[in-house]
Design a protein around this nucleic acid. Structure first.
Length: 775
RNA sequence: UGGCCCGUCGUCUAAUGGCAGGACAUCCGGUUUUGGUCCGGACGGUCGGGGUUCGAAUCCCUGCGGGCCAACCA
């Protein structure tokens, strides 16, 4: 990777990560020149194994950087020695590498302890942090609640020199745990609890797995994380939604301590998967309690388990791409993961046969020429790959117990008395008899080979089998969902007690001998059963080979037989209600607000608009001042624009507050008057408003300089309308066919063609007329 | 209860204020020596109410629903 390479916005077809709001932000930063090179990081805490949810984050972190020619750090966030373990450090690296990603460098937050300590001292010197001697309970109690402000610590104004000395003593280990903490001095009354003088450092007399006993103070996440990002030169720091509130402290720190371009944090939705839990903290108890057989137990959603099960990195990457990256709390159907796994394996897995729950079948009427070894293809007709394996046919074969029924249900395509079934790659067999034990269990099947060419033979279906003479005993492990309910983490009950004991079933059956001759790491499709491979944990063990089911095949029949319980629907929306009357804002106004309201109404602004406007002193001020300029704009129009158009212009200008806008009352009044008088069109007015907000200046001058006056010439409009319609014959046909929603498409096209100068209402009218004429 | 964030087919997710589209799932049909794959088709959605606009999923107000925050965890 070229260390100094400038990042470039990729074309859509060059992207491995589907465009999303994060890539949009990256695009903006690159286009504006705010950053030159994309740097991301994946920052797991080494306190557990990575899971499928991390895979989504990894694909995003690494994928985004790679798509732009940037780099990614793998950073172990080891700021809390009491809950971290080097075992996990190795596992994390193995999993990320397995997924197929390369980090530019492996880092630890502990690499930066010295640097972070200095940064903390800088904060203290500037009066932005202080050492607090309150104990934990007091700090908690004085933080306040979500509705009540906190109360400042008596140590809040401790002189910097004193804090510095204490902080140094804390570092040396002079004080017991809990005696002091370092706190940022921000705002004890902030509505964002994170900002109520957050703790930056605490005393911990613990041995760190990398720094040993060198430190007695350890930084908190909120301090170490943003500053580690900044130290590494991370440009886009991607994390999950629950850190949204933390962005405030993130910005507070990096903006105080570093120069532009400072890293920016973006929060995306974490992956929630049905019927499992995607949280290290909820997974760990399962491992600790022995409910599963370790972090790589095939029922687990960890990457180690998925790898052991035989799921490929490609399938996981595909899945990560399919679930997408947004800000909505989403819960993904496991079916989506399974679809990615099947798509991947369908083209990769050779087809062979295994009988998981065998029952003997005796085939009469097979002559010497029929039995013996033959070649059978490993691939179906629709997978473009070549290859055969030797397949032995004999009179005695094993078939699947589930493929035999004495009293078949309607639509049955397998063995049943009188039914005719083909043995895959073998003869057609008429079922003569089904033996059943007292308990109803099928014990044996008897059949006779028939000539498939005979007129009266109708082959109901195809069934898999293995000749008894060559069948190799094998064990099959069938993995199912870990929890029976879709959202096991929904309530506070311990997830451990919800684990489905039947989530792992073991079956003893047989497999074709060829399977044991091939590469033991082969992923197979056992026809009609699913994708399997040999459990890596058992490949070298004695005894029958152990096959893990990676994923089932789609099974239309199983669904027809026992329709899967439908997912709980979302709680039904409340019954349609009568129109909600909008509360009168005037009621909640304070004295000054009521005064503003009265003035606005006096100017002729309707009560409703006036009340909404009066809530904001600054916007009211703008409207009043604009009206006072005598530019001719009516107060009602000014209010309308201020209320409905200005917010978007402000948002588009980078969420800037009105105070930072370049738009003054005079320009605003002039603009609104221009539109009101019909000098410029509405669309032009809106475009100009956006320009005035960011760049300032005069609306009228812009109109004159750029010829933005409204198009009044009916003939010119008619001509443009005709051009647009001629350019879109298909759409015209569709419109005339009844899809009248297309009118918007045409209006938009005409507006674009005229640079927004046409009056939309006139355009629409002309369009409707022209379209009617073409009927 | 305060602040922040989020509501689009059953699920996940698109749509510079301009044709609500895709994937998974479901259903129907075709191909098939896998009840698989593949192909064709169908079903199905902008949380409710108001406002702005020629035009609103998108902007504004409001109601409702969901998530996050009061660790010396991350």
């Amino acid at each position: 990777m070229d260390e100094g390479a400038r990042s470039r916005i990729p074309r859509d077809d060059e992207r491995t990560v589907a465009p999303n709001f994060v890539t949009a932000a990256v695009d903006r930063d690159l286009a504006s020149g705010r950053v030159e090179r994309v740097v991301t990081r994946f920052p797991p805490e080494p306190n557990g194994y990575l899971h499928i949810g991390h895979a989504k984050a990894i694909c995003l972190d690494f994928g985004v950087a790679a798509d732009y020619g940037g780099v990614t750090y793998l950073r172990l966030d080891d700021t809390n020695p009491v809950q971290e373990d080097p075992e996990f450090v190795d596992a994390i690296q193995r999993d990320v590498a397995w997924l197929g990603f390369e980090w530019i460098a492996l880092r630890h937050a502990s690499d930066y302890f010295e640097r972070l300590y200095e940064l903390a001292r800088t904060l203290i010197r500037r009066g932005d942090a202080y050492v607090d001697s309150q104990d934990l309970d007091t700090i908690r109690a004085t933080r306040g609640t979500v509705t009540t402000p906190g109360t400042p610590s008596p140590d809040r104004d401790r002189p910097a020199e004193e804090s510095l000395a204490l902080f140094e003593a804390m570092r040396r280990g002079d004080h017991p745990e809990g005696a002091y903490v370092l706190r940022a001095k921000i705002d004890m009354a902030s509505p964002n609890m994170i900002l109520r003088d957050p703790v930056l450092y605490r005393i911990l007399h613990a041995t760190h797995h990398r720094t040993g006993d060198a430190w007695h103070v350890y930084p908190m996440y909120d301090f170490a994380h943003p500053l580690s990002d900044a130290i590494e030169g991370v440009t886009h720091s991607l994390c999950t939604l629950e850190f949204e509130n933390n962005r405030a402290i993130y910005d507070w720190l990096v903006e105080r301590l570093f120069d532009e371009p400072v890293p920016r944090q973006y929060e995306f939705n974490r992956l929630e998967l049905d019927h499992t839990v995607v949280s290290k903290r909820k997974l760990a108890p399962l491992v600790d309690a022995g409910l599963v057989d370790g972090w790589d137990d095939p029922r687990m959603p960890t990457l180690a388990a998925l790898r052991r099960r035989g799921v490929t990195p490609a399938a996981i990457r595909d899945f990560a791409n399919r679930v997408g990256v947004t800000k909505t709390n989403a819960r993904t159907d496991v079916g989506l993961l399974e679809a990615s796994i099947r798509d991947d394996l369908n083209a990769k897995a050779p087809r062979v046969m295994a009988v998981l729950d065998p029952v003997p079948l005796t085939v009469e009427g097979l002559d010497e020429g029929d039995v013996g070894v033959r070649d059978a293809p490993l691939w179906p007709h629709d997978v473009p790959r070549e290859g055969d394996r030797p397949l032995t046919l004999a009179r005695e074969v094993w078939v699947e117990r589930g493929d035999v029924a004495r009293d078949p249900p309607k639509g049955w395509k397998r063995f049943a008395p009188g039914a005719t079934v083909r043995l895959r790659h073998g003869p057609v067999v008429r079922c003569d008899r089904v033996d059943v034990a007292d308990d109803g269990r099928v014990t044996a099947v008897h059949g006779t080979a028939v000539d498939p060419g005979a007129d009266d033979v109708k082959v109901a279906g195809v069934v898999h089998w293995v000749a008894r003479s060559v069948a190799v005993p094998a064990t099959f492990q069938l993995v199912d969902r870990l929890f029976p309910m879709p959202d096991p983490g929904a309530d506070d009950r311990d997830v451990a007690e919800k684990v489905d004991p039947g989530a792992l079933r073991t079956l003893h059956g047989v497999v074709e001998p060829y399977v044991l001759e091939a590469d033991p790491a082969t992923r197979w499709q056992f026809e009609r059963q699913g994708y399997f491979w040999r459990d890596p944990a058992h490949r070298d063990a004695d005894g029958p080979p152990v096959f893990l089911r990676i994923v089932t095949l789609k099974d239309g029949w199983a669904k027809a037989e026992a329709p899967a319980p439908r997912r709980e629907r979302r709680p039904a929306p409340a019954a349609p209600t009568a129109p909600d009357p909008e509360p009168d804002k005037a009621a909640t106004l304070d004295a000054e607000g009521r005064a503003r309201l009265a003035r606005l109404e006096g100017l002729g602004v309707a009560h409703r608009d006036a009340a909404r406007l009066a809530e904001h002193a600054d916007v009211t001020g703008l409207v009043e001042a604009a009206h006072g300029t005598g530019a001719g704009a009516s107060a009602a129009a000014l209010a309308n624009w201020a209320l409905n158009e200005l917010p978007r212009a402000l948002t588009d200008a980078g969420d800037r507050p009105l105070a930072d806008a370049q738009l003054g009352p005079a320009a605003f009044a002039e603009l609104v008057a221009l539109v009101e008088e019909g000098v410029v069109s509405g669309p032009t007015g809106k475009a100009l408003l956006a320009e005035l907000v960011t760049d300032g200046g005069s609306a009228r001058e812009r109109v004159e300089a750029r010829g933005l006056a409204r198009i009044d010439d009916a003939d010119a409009l008619t001509e443009t309308v005709a051009e647009v319609l001629d350019a879109h014959p298909d759409e015209v046909a569709t419109y005339l066919g009844g899809k009248e929603g297309l009118i918007g498409f045409f209006v938009g096209a005409v507006l674009r063609a005229t640079d927004g100068r046409a009056d939309p209402a006139a355009v629409r009218e002309a369009l409707t007329a022209a379209l009617d004429a073409r009927r």
